[in-house]
Amino acid sequence: MEVEVSAEAKDKRLNRLVAITVVVLSVFMGLCGIKDGNIVQGMQAAQASSVDTWNEYQAARTKQHIAEATRAEIALLATDPAKAAPVLAGYDRDIAKYAAEAPKLAADAKAQSDAYDALNVHDDQFDASDAAISTAISVAAVAALAEAGWLLGVAWVFGAFGMFMGLCGFFGWGFHPAVLSGLLG
């Protein structure tokens, strides 16, 4: 008994649909990858700026604390208040400068942190898009191998979700897959 194995697929229409699906999803995923890379660079810059600004804030608060302690020591130990007055006035200026500087630095650092968080939402959207489209391409390949049209339908569902998430990232839409991000994050 001989078994004839055919290298040709029975359903060429299914294979064409799989091929078109893979091409469309791959191109879309590539474009999303470029945009996501730019977002990640923006996130890195925002985080670095936030860390730097928080460090400046901490330095200003430390300098203020040192100036206040030094001023109090000089005022307490000064034997001649007239000689100590100009030195104390200098410390008063420094203390006022640091006291005014610190809240602005804290606000700037918080703004950079908020910018990072806003960009992270879009990064999560692109990550979800990438995961869904990768799954769609894999399922589409299995659909071609198994010659099962219903599997191609499953691939299209994953692909549609992936494209939706990619479009959310591109256009700045607020949809965030919190459950998915929490599960995978």
Results as ranks from 00 to 15, higher is better:
E2L: 13
V18E: 03
E56R: 15
L17S: 13
F158I: 12
I20Y: 14
G174K: 11
L31D: 01
Q47D: 09
D36T: 03
G37Q: 00
V23M: 00
S181V: 09
V24F: 05
A160G: 10
A140T: 02
H122G: 06
V24C: 09
L14P: 06
I39L: 05
F164I: 14
V179M: 13
V51N: 08
L14A: 09
I20M: 07
R71Y: 02
F170P: 00
D11K: 02
A148C: 12
V179H: 15
A69L: 11
P177R: 02
V40T: 00
L183N: 04
A89T: 15
D94M: 11
K63F: 13
G159C: 03
I66N: 09
R16F: 12
G172E: 03
A78W: 02
E56P: 10
V139I: 14
A60K: 06
S49F: 03
L119R: 04
Q64E: 14
N15V: 14
R16I: 13
E56I: 10
A118E: 13
A132H: 07
A85E: 12
Q58C: 11
V87S: 11
Q58D: 14
A67H: 04
Q125K: 01
A19H: 06
D124M: 07
A89Q: 10
F126K: 01
H122D: 11
A118W: 08
A46Q: 11
M43P: 01
A141Y: 08
A7E: 11
G162L: 03
G182W: 13
T21I: 11
E101T: 02
E147G: 02
D124I: 01
E68D: 09
L183D: 05
V87M: 15
V22R: 10
A115Q: 15
L184A: 10
G90V: 04
I39T: 01
I39A: 01
M165S: 01
Y91M: 00
V5Q: 07
A128V: 14
A46M: 08
L31Q: 06
A75Q: 07
M29F: 02
L25F: 08
D52Q: 15
S113W: 10
Q125I: 00
W173D: 05
M163P: 02
V23S: 00
L167F: 10
V22D: 10
V24S: 10
A48R: 04
A178W: 12
A143P: 08
A85Y: 07
A115L: 14
K97I: 12
D94T: 15
I20E: 12
M1W: 08
V142S: 13
D108P: 09
V87I: 15
G182H: 13
F170S: 00
Y91C: 05
A146V: 09
A155I: 08
W173L: 15
G162W: 05
A72N: 03
A131W: 07
D52S: 14
A107E: 15
R93Y: 06
V51M: 10
K10S: 15
D36A: 09
G166S: 02
Y116T: 03
P177M: 02
L152G: 04
